[in-house]
Amino acid sequence: MPSSREETARTILSAIATGSIPLGRFTADARWWWNGGIDISVAEFDTLLGTLHAQMADGIHVTPGLIMEAGEHLFVEATSHSLLKNGTLYDNRYVFLFRFAGDRIALVKEYSDSAHVKVVFALG
């Protein structure tokens, strides 16, 4: 049976496809860090996600695989397979590290193929 933290992480990853994440699942000072060069508040990440979502044919679908919980941390291996409106395929692999404070997420560290992200979304 999945833990409540695992269910929370799955909810966040599933919500990415909608272009907005449920901010109530995060602490007030939560951060989203990405190995491609961002370290922003979760609210700022939500805005960025909306911008990326606008380019997608049907959202960024993140599929969790292996999930491991250790203390206040939850690790999720995941993949995505999504199509942009311009026909470009966004197909990435991730490791997400969620750090919890109680039942809320305090930090998300997203590791992915940052070069693929920058090329597909024309981020320079």
Rank of each mutant, 00 (worst) to 15 (best):
F75W: 15
V120I: 12
H116P: 05
R10C: 02
I40E: 12
S112E: 14
R99C: 05
D39R: 10
F100T: 07
P64F: 01
L66T: 14
V108I: 15
L66D: 14
G124K: 11
S112Y: 07
R25K: 11
I60V: 13
D103C: 10
G124Q: 12
L74K: 01
N35W: 05
Y90G: 02
S112T: 09
I12F: 06
I12T: 03
Y90M: 08
I40R: 14
I105K: 00
R10D: 01
N86M: 13
T88R: 13
G50M: 09
G19P: 03
G124S: 14
S112F: 05
G36K: 00
H61K: 15
A115F: 14
F26G: 07
T11I: 09
H116G: 04
T79S: 13
R99V: 11
V108W: 02
F45Q: 11
I105R: 00
L48Q: 07
G71Y: 02
H53R: 13
R99Y: 03
S112A: 13
F26R: 06
M68V: 11
A9C: 11
S3L: 06
V108D: 06
K109I: 05
A43G: 07
V108L: 13
H81Q: 07
R25W: 06
A54H: 04
L66I: 13
Y111L: 12
E7V: 13
H116E: 12
F98M: 07
G124I: 03
P2I: 05
G65R: 08
M1V: 12
E110L: 02
A17F: 08
G102D: 03
L84E: 04
L48R: 11
D29V: 09
A78E: 00
S112H: 10
S80A: 08
A15L: 04
K85R: 15
L49A: 08
L89W: 09
A106W: 10
D58N: 14
M68W: 11
D29C: 03
M1N: 14
V95Q: 13
A17V: 05
W33T: 14
T51C: 04
A78N: 00
T88S: 13
P64R: 00
G36N: 01
S14R: 14
T88H: 11
T79Q: 08
E44L: 10
D91P: 02
T51M: 10
D29H: 12
F96W: 07
S14W: 08
V42Y: 03
I105T: 02
A9G: 01
A43K: 09
A17P: 03
W33R: 15
F121R: 05
